[in-house]
Amino acid sequence: MIEFHNVTKLYKTVIGVNDISLKIEPGVYGLLGPNGSGKTTFINLVMGQLRPSMGHLSVFGMDPWQNDGLLNRIGLCPAIQAHYPFISGLKWVAYLTQLRGFSRKQSHQMAAESLAVVGMEYAMNRAMSSYSLGMRQRTVLAQSIAHKPELLILDEPFNGLDPKGRYEMTVFLKSWVKEGRSVILASHILHEVESLNPSLLLVSGGRLLASGSPQQVRSIIANCPNSVRVRCRQTAELAALVTGNFEIKSISINSEAEELEIESMNPLELLKLLPGLAMKNNLLISELRSSDDSLQNIFSMLMLIHRGGMRLPE
């Protein structure tokens, strides 16, 4: 469906994407990366709005650079809120559908249908200025699916949605995927995309750092050097146990908070074995968690590994 061959995009001296090569077959993909990692550039390249500075890419077997023929096969839900005073959601979606070449009547019908799909039927004749953030997000989604594209690209679709809205968005995307359509979902939050069980593409600094199923990515993350926080009353005894049994970089004891922070070279092994070892030694652990679980830290580590500054433990 999508092929990148050593694609680099430069904005003068700023690198948008850096030497990306990948092949995406039809399916569900999560494009994960921190803010400013190159996700939007990746999407704009796929949409043919940007031309690669180096390398080449194809979408549905064609060069996407300003290839208007491709655009009706793709639906784009950008990470942008639409805001037009006095214009209803229905009129806006119908207008954007007309720009795809459909007649006025067809566009109105398609717009009304897509707004109903995203649960905006009740408010579609209201001015968009009266919409909440979540309603606008759903209207933006409606404009991307009105023409029933083969590939739906969503850029941070969960932004601004409340828990109910997030749930509804997930339900919608699951049903969309069930119909056999492809989805690329760009996000900086792992668990948002995980529910769709996608193949993950991890990007940072414009580079593709890792790819695979959520389980594979989680195992990569778990095997990265990481900090682990352990809450235990007998902090000194636990610290002694840890230093004697695990390969660690550092350990700090906070007696007042009854907490240990362990910087481990192999956090997965530590998380697996420490509870059993503590039990054997009659030490009661009340909490065990990874402290560096933000995506930004994970990406920083992956970037370090990618540059050869760090090696993954075997």
Binding site: M47, Q49, D68, L71, I74, L99
Partner: peptide, 12 residues
């Protein structure tokens, strides 16, 4: 910020 919506259409 409506450019992305318009240019993702063939006749945008």
């Amino acid at each position: 910020k409506s450019w992305a919506f318009i240019t993702s259409r063939p006749y945008g």
